[in-house]
Computed example of a mutant assay.
Amino acid sequence: MADRREELLELLTDHVQQHGLEGASIRTLATAAGVAHNTLTHHFGSRTELLAAVFERLSSRIPTGPAPTVDTAPTERLRATWAALLTHPQVSTWPVFYEVLSVALRSPEEHRTYLTRVSEGWTAPLAAELVAAGRSQRDALASATFVVAAVRGLVIDALCGGDRERIEDALALLADFVDDLTR
């Protein structure tokens, strides 16, 4: 039964990633998955529980970039992550990421796991790396939060069709900040 739930979760996550959440009722999602609506309630419970599972799966699809290695400079990883964030198929994840985030923010208690993952999923590993490089825990968390927020903001600007040269210049400023953090 767990395998069927996983299969359905993958199908539904693909559907939401491609089509967004507009009109995403249990019945429309069941139709998209090719099953009866009671199949979804059997495997996921309520619409809220189903969407929470889909949101969680979507958040795991956002690439985080290359893993830290001793011989890779943080600015190199930042640029590699940036390139990965705006390549196909990842670029199709971003609009639904922000749509899902908006829905989750309207019902934070129902989507606490997702919101925690969005908040800490990139920040915590970067902060840990900064602590290992000698930063205080507080400074590392603040710096990691700033870097992640800046990257997400630049992604929004790029998706909105912002001037690529201006966005790349902003990324260069962010890379300088990251470089300063690790000195």
Score class of each variant (00 low, 15 high):
56 E>F: 11
56 E>W: 12
59 S>E: 15
61 R>H: 08
62 I>S: 06
67 A>W: 06
69 T>I: 00
70 V>Q: 08
70 V>L: 13
70 V>Y: 07
72 T>V: 14
74 P>I: 02
75 T>D: 14
78 L>T: 07
79 R>T: 14
79 R>H: 13
84 A>D: 14
84 A>K: 08
85 L>Q: 11
85 L>T: 04
85 L>F: 15
86 L>G: 13
89 P>V: 09
90 Q>S: 14
92 S>K: 07
98 Y>V: 04
99 E>N: 07
101 L>I: 03
103 V>F: 13
105 L>W: 06
105 L>K: 11
106 R>F: 12
110 E>L: 12
113 T>E: 11
117 R>S: 09
118 V>F: 15
119 S>K: 10
119 S>Q: 10
120 E>R: 04
120 E>N: 06
121 G>V: 07
123 T>H: 11
123 T>K: 13
125 P>V: 02
135 R>M: 10
137 Q>A: 12
139 D>I: 01
141 L>S: 12
141 L>N: 09
145 T>S: 12
145 T>H: 06
146 F>I: 01
147 V>H: 05
147 V>W: 09
149 A>C: 02
153 G>N: 04
154 L>K: 02
154 L>V: 00
155 V>K: 02
155 V>S: 05
156 I>V: 08
156 I>H: 10
157 D>R: 07
164 R>I: 00
165 E>N: 04
167 I>C: 07
168 E>T: 00
169 D>C: 03
169 D>H: 08
170 A>L: 08
171 L>K: 01
173 L>A: 03
173 L>N: 01
173 L>Y: 04
176 D>N: 02
